[in-house]
Structure formats: structure tokens, C-alpha cells
Design a protein around this nucleic acid. Structure first.
Length: 608
RNA sequence: CGGGAUGUAGCGCAGCUUGGUCAGCGCGCCUGCUUUGGGAGCAGGAAGCCGGGAGUUCGAAUCUCCCCAUCCCGACCA
């Protein structure tokens, strides 16, 4: 591929709409262009990166026994009405009508249609297990698309569904996928961490997310620094060891304290001269069947996901000031559990051991002192409903937990029989008895993975692609296009690289070298071969993008007669001897007699 | 969906307060010459229904109203 013929519209300035690094760099380096909010065109370089990621995903899915299929993106409403999600999914579902007025949607996920498929053709235990996957565009009309490819309305996703006879089978499938995901993200050259995750509205029992660690991530990973322990979880799911000892005091009689205008935990505790851990924070939530009060220690936050799961609702919103006033007959800031009349009172387990604590008195400008759980109020439920963050202690080993931001690039779920039961997906076992299929589902955000790779691999000059997913491995830069020697040697190196199975870009533009160097850094080719003044001696420079490590390499003999014996070997070695070695060594070899014109180039370079 | 902001040439922006030499700047793009190891210089050139509509006015990029789009901050998800 020749730069002069290739569509790589690099930009010198950062487009104003791009906030995060991956978005900025993918735009600037000529990988993507926006078509609409949350909808992007993939230019040739991006397309190649995506192809590489998909190739890795396919290899690992196939290795684990997966079978790729194609599913419709346009799906009939009937399927979604049947599963009930046509109404539940809400405005995130892209809906459309055909010319006859029939309803359709653009698939945001494919449970319905794949279950339908399997239901139609699954009869016997002999057909199980079954692992089916697809890699396609998905559509979600996000409330707020943002961060470029991170949260688009159209995105590429791999979905695999597993169908097993029983729990043991599901365990095996889940394990296979977990391992496959680990291999995939390792091969993509990403620093990631599998973490325990909440299974959310998709349901099911066990779930892990694969988080690429990056400060721009929207998620938070809580992890135990003790390598032997290894606990790691999404903050939504993470548990810490509860502080289960209160103050060592006699129970004192409850009394009112006047706290004029003091609404926040900080204000109240400062006024009373006690620590936040002596206060019980009472938050009111509006749930479908009534108001729920959540009680946590003053220095904790309520984990709404845990709360939702506990009380079994999928919608929970903080009560507004009006509801607070109606329920407590007091303004926001003075709510407390004593005498509180709500549908459900849920207390965090830490609250129950507190002694002589402070709470709101459900009366303006008033708090209670010396409130004691059990004596002064009785929650309907006691559970872990707090957010675990830095500084809390690992429930398993007692080390102090830490947290980092992460980008969720994959998630695996054990669904169990949740869907097969409601959709009556069954098979006949050896005894001829009808049994429910046990399912799992496993997703990877392919386009998001590309963005995540950039978030983790860049510097002030541009992208630094991991070799395994780089759109092009090597860029060959003749410094001066008017120097025939340089041009010819560059052509030769370029041809040799292709002959050796290494895809290369020849920057044959009549630009000044600085421009080409800047673009090379921006685009992020792992290796740059510079053909400059030393070309007359048959020498070129090989520069590694990541380390800026440079080596002068003799490529041809003094007379330019025969290729220098070690040239190809060296170039091959020097491009494969650092991160992500899996890819280069797997690239298919090509015949050396083929001309490296663009016509011969594969549209997609398959690995493996 | 709430809150905040922004729409002027391909990209980045100024101009709007105070309507009228106000269609501008930088980069990019095209032509020519020079230059060629980190985003060159000179000369010439193309390019904008000033987001859209309706108003106010002798006159609107500028003032008013409505709409649309985009981006950023909060509850969902890959």
C-alpha cells in the first residue's frame, strides 16, 4: 500500500468535538469520521485494525468450539413482543416500520433471535453443547452517545451463546469462554483485568467483566493488591469486609439536638464534633412499589445496584425534595429511620452494630443523638448495600483494597435457565424426558476494544499500536523523493517486507520528511524504516515507535547487486521481537515474485 | 431525559456586547519556483445560504422567537 493512493486523512489539529484520547487520535490519524452522533465511518486503517481484532476473536472462539453464524440486524417486532422486551427495552431500541407499517427494530443484542433459532432446531441432548456466535453491528439509541467509539449508537460486537444440558455443562462452557477472553485480550496486547461483575438486568448468577485499565474508563475496578488473594470486582459488585464493631459505650437515652440548617453529613458531624462513622445516613429512593429508605454509615455511599438487587426492582431513583417532605414532614437533610413511615427500610450491615449514633429526626433543623439500631428502629432488611472503594478492606484477606478506572471490553454471564424457562427452550435427554437448556452469553465490544487499545497505547505524538492489531506493521519512509537512490531502495525494502509476509506502507508522498515522520508517529505503525542519506551505502534505519529505539541496518550490498543476506531476516526479526509477537510470525507467507503493487494486496490481512 | 455550552471555508478559531468596509485569521487544499532528517519559504489561487426557519429593521453572522444539530456533566450497558 502506498500512502499517496491510500485514504489516510490526517489532521494537524484536534477536532473540537473529541474529548478523550482515543477519539481525538482516531480522528486525527485518519481512522474514523463521524457520520452522526454516536455513528462512525471506519476508514481503511480502522477497518484493518477491526479486521485484526475480529480475526483474533474468531480464532479463539473457534478454538473453544464456537461456530460463527450471521444473524439479521433488522428483526421483527413479534420476536421482541414475545420476549416482552419490545416494551421493556424502551427508547434505546431503534425502531422502524416497513412499507406495510409492520414494526421492526435494529438488533441491540441477539438473545431473542438466537433463542428462536435454537428452539426451532434443537431436539436432542446429542446436539449439546452448542456454542454459537456472531460478530456484527449492534444498535442502541443511547441516551447520551459519547467518547467516540466508546459509547456509540452503532457498534461492532461479538456475541456468543452457549447451550448446555446442565449446570456442569454451563460451567465448562463458561470456563472455556473465560479462558478464551483472557487469550483474546492478551493477544490484543492490552493490559486488562477480569473482574467479578453484577449480572444486571440480563440476569443470571455469575458474571465477569473484562476491563481494560485506563484512566478514561467509565467503570471502576476494585481490587486486592495482595497477589495471592487476587480479588477483583466491578465497584457495582465489590464487597469489602464490614466494620462490625461499634463504639464501646453504654447505650444512652435518645435525645433531640437542634441543628439549624445543617443538612450534610459533614456539617452535622462537624457541628457535633464527631466522626462521620458515628452518623447514620438515610436516603430515600422511589421504587415502583413505594418509597425505600436506605441506611448506611455517614462515611459510606449507597450502592444502588446492590439495593436494587436486594429488593428486586429494576428501577430506583432518588426521591425528590417533594417526596422527602411528604414522607418525613421535613426538608431534605433531616431524614432518619426513627419513626419513619416508608414501604421498606433497608440497613447496611454496618449500621446494625453502631452505638449511640446520630440520625436525622424527620423534623426541620433537628437531629437525634444516641440512636441505637434495634432499640430505636428496626429495619425490614439488613444487608450489604454500601459502595466499596479505596481504603476499605478486602473481605477475603484483609488487605486494603485499591481501585482503578477501566473500560469494559467484554462480559461473560451464566444465564442458567432464566431464558430457556420463559421461552420454553428444551431438549430430550437419554430417558426421553424434556429438560430445560442451560444457557450462557458472552460479549466482546470489538469497536470499543479498538478504542480501548488506543487509550492504553499512545504518547504525545500519536497512537502506538500493539503489533498484533496494528493496521500496518511497518511504514517505509524515503526521506527525499527526488533522490532516486532513496526511492529505489525504499521500493526494494517495501517489496521485501511484503515478500516476507509483513504488511507495509510506503510513504511515497512528495512531502518533506518532517511531515512524513509526524504522520508515521500519529498513525502509530509499530516500526518505521527510514531510507535517507545512508541509502547510497545500502543502509536504512529501523525505528521502533514505542521505544524510539533505532538501528542502522545494511539492506543491500555495496553494488546493490544481491540483497544483503541478512536484510530480510533482520527486518522480520526487528519487527516481531517486541510486544505482541503472536501476529507477525503467523502472517501467511507470500511468493516473492509477486509485485507489491496495491492490486496484489489483500483487502484484509488474515492472521493465523 | 434533566443541567451547561457551542454551531462562521476541510480542521481550529475571531467577529456578535455597540446592527452598516464584516465575510476574516491560522492550518490544510490547488498552481508555479525554491527547499528536503521532525508538520518549509516565496508568489499566485479556489473555497463559506455565518446550522435552519420566522420576525424586528432602510439594512441582520450580529437583536428576538421557534426549530435542528453537536459537545460536555448526572441515573443504563459491550
Amino acid at each position: 500500500m502506498r500512502f499517496s493512493e491510500y485514504l489516510v486523512p490526517t489532521l494537524r489539529e484536534v477536532p473540537a468535538e473529541a474529548e478523550i484520547v482515543s477519539h481525538q487520535l482516531l480522528l486525527r490519524a485518519g481512522f474514523i469520521r463521524k457520520a452522526a452522533s454516536g455513528v462512525y465511518t471506519y476508514l481503511p486503517l480502522a477497518f484493518r485494525v477491526l479486521a485484526r481484532i475480529k480475526a483474533i476473536v474468531r480464532e479463539e472462539m473457534d478454538r473453544a468450539g464456537g461456530q460463527e453464524i450471521g444473524l439479521p440486524i433488522i428483526q421483527p417486532a413479534e420476536l421482541w413482543l414475545e420476549s416482552g422486551r419490545w416494551n421493556v427495552y424502551g427508547p434505546e431500541l431503534f425502531r422502524l416500520k416497513d412499507r406495510h407499517g409492520r414494526d421492526f427494530c435494529l438488533g441491540p443484542t441477539h438473545e431473542e433471535i438466537i433463542t428462536e433459532l435454537v428452539k426451532g432446531d434443537l431436539r436432542s441432548y446429542k446436539q449439546l453443547p452448542l456454542l454459537i456466535y456472531q460478530i456484527q453491528n449492534k444498535y442502541r439509541d443511547e441516551r447520551r452517545p459519547r467518547f467516540g467509539l466508546m459509547r456509540g449508537r452503532e457498534f461492532i460486537m461479538k456475541d456468543l451463546y452457549s447451550f448446555d444440558r446442565d449446570e456442569a455443562g454451563l460451567d465448562a462452557s463458561y470456563r472455556k469462554m473465560y479462558d478464551a477472553y483472557t487469550r483474546i485480550f492478551e493477544r490484543c496486547g492490552l493490559e486488562f483485568r477480569p473482574v467479578e461483575a453484577d449480572s444486571g438486568p440480563i440476569g443470571g448468577s455469575v458474571s465477569h467483566e473484562f476491563m481494560v485499565l485506563a484512566d478514561s474508563g467509565e467503570g471502576t475496578v476494585v481490587y486486592c493488591p495482595d497477589a495471592g488473594c487476587g480479588y477483583a470486582a466491578n465497584i457495582e459488585k465489590a464487597i469489602g469486609r464490614p466494620a462490625l464493631s461499634g463504639a464501646d459505650e453504654e447505650l444512652a437515652p435518645r435525645e433531640e439536638v437542634v441543628t439549624p440548617g445543617l443538612k450534610t453529613v459533614d456539617q452535622v458531624t462537624a457541628f457535633l464534633g464527631v466522626g462521620a462513622e458515628r452518623l447514620v445516613k438515610t436516603l430515600l429512593y422511589e421504587a415502583p412499589d413505594g418509597v425505600v429508605a436506605a441506611l448506611v454509615r455517614g462515611d459510606r455511599e449507597v450502592n444502588e445496584i446492590k439495593l436494587q438487587n436486594l429488593i428486586g426492582v429494576d428501577q430506583l431513583e432518588m426521591a425528590d425534595a417533594e417526596i422527602v417532605r411528604r414522607v418525613t414532614r421535613a426538608p431534605v437533610g433531616f431524614t432518619g429511620p426513627v419513626g419513619l413511615d416508608v414501604e421498606t427500610i433497608v440497613a447496611d450491615e454496618e449500621v446494625m452494630v453502631m452505638v449511640n449514633c446520630i440520625t436525622g429526626a424527620n423534623k426541620a433543623d433537628t437531629h437525634y443523638r444516641n440512636v441505637n439500631p434495634g432499640r430505636d428502629f428496626k429495619p425490614d432488611l439488613t444487608a450489604d448495600i454500601r459502595v466499596v472503594d479505596d481504603g476499605q478492606v478486602c473481605a477475603r484477606c484483609g488487605a486494603v483494597l485499591q481501585s482503578r478506572r477501566g473500560i469494559e471490553v467484554g462480559q461473560v454471564f451464566k444465564l442458567g435457565i432464566k431464558y430457556s424457562k420463559s421461552l420454553h427452550l428444551t431438549y430430550l435427554d437419554e430417558q426421553g424426558e424434556e429438560r430445560l437448556v442451560v444457557m450462557g452469553c458472552y460479549g466482546i465490544g470489538v469497536s470499543r476494544t479498538m478504542a480501548a487499545a488506543v487509550e492504553q497505547n499512545y504518547d504525545a505524538d500519536g497512537i502506538i499500536w500493539p503489533v498484533s492489531i496494528a493496521p500496518v506493521k511497518v511504514v517505509v519512509v524515503p526521506v527525499n523523493m527526488k533522490e532516486q537512490t532513496q526511492v529505489e531502495l525504499a521500493e526494494r525494502v517495501y517489496r521485501d517486507l511484503w515478500a516476507a509476509g509483513i504488511d507495509a506502507m510506503l510513504d511515497d508522498r512528495a512531502e518533506r520528511p518532517g511531515v512524513k515522520f509526524k504522520d508515521a508517529d500519529l498513525v502509530g505503525y509499530p516500526v518505521r524504516v527510514t531510507v535517507g542519506k545512508k541509502a547510497v551505502d545500502g543502509e536504512v534505519e529501523v525505528l521502533r515507535r514505542r521505544t524510539r529505539e533505532m538501528q542502522v541496518v545494511p539492506v543491500v550490498g555495496p553494488e546493490w547487486g544481491t540483497p544483503y543476506p541478512s536484510a530480510r531476516t533482520f527486518l522480520t526479526a526487528s519487527t516481531s521481537s517486541f510486544t505482541g509477537t503472536t501476529c507477525i510470525s503467523r502472517v501467511r507467507r507470500r511468493s516473492t515474485s509477486t509485485s507489491p503493487s496495491t492490486a496484489f494486496l489483500p483487502t484484509v490481512t488474515r492472521t493465523g
